[in-house]
Amino acid sequence: MQTAVHQAGNLYLDACAHAQAQGLPWNRVQNGERAEDVRAEYLAMSETLFELEKRAMGYLEQGVRLGMG
């Protein structure tokens, strides 16, 4: 169980890094960046986070199964 939980934890660390990698979208646009570019990068980040999250949940499911055994 510990290994699976550890793997999930690492994926959440990756998720944090992605979430911190770009500024807040409204602020970026206010600071002069093109809204289209900001939206595209924000969407790409969201999709990446969702993929990481699905993988992390897979590890947590594995951890719970092992914990039950």
Partner: peptide, 24 residues
């Protein structure tokens, strides 16, 4: 494409990593 959602994600996922780290 909202500030609030990203702010929440940063808080929440930082805690998720810490919580799982202490559990593992």
């Amino acid at each position: 494409c909202d500030n609030n959602m990203l702010i929440h994600l940063r808080y929440n996922r930082g805690s998720a990593a810490a919580y799982l780290g202490s559990m593992a």
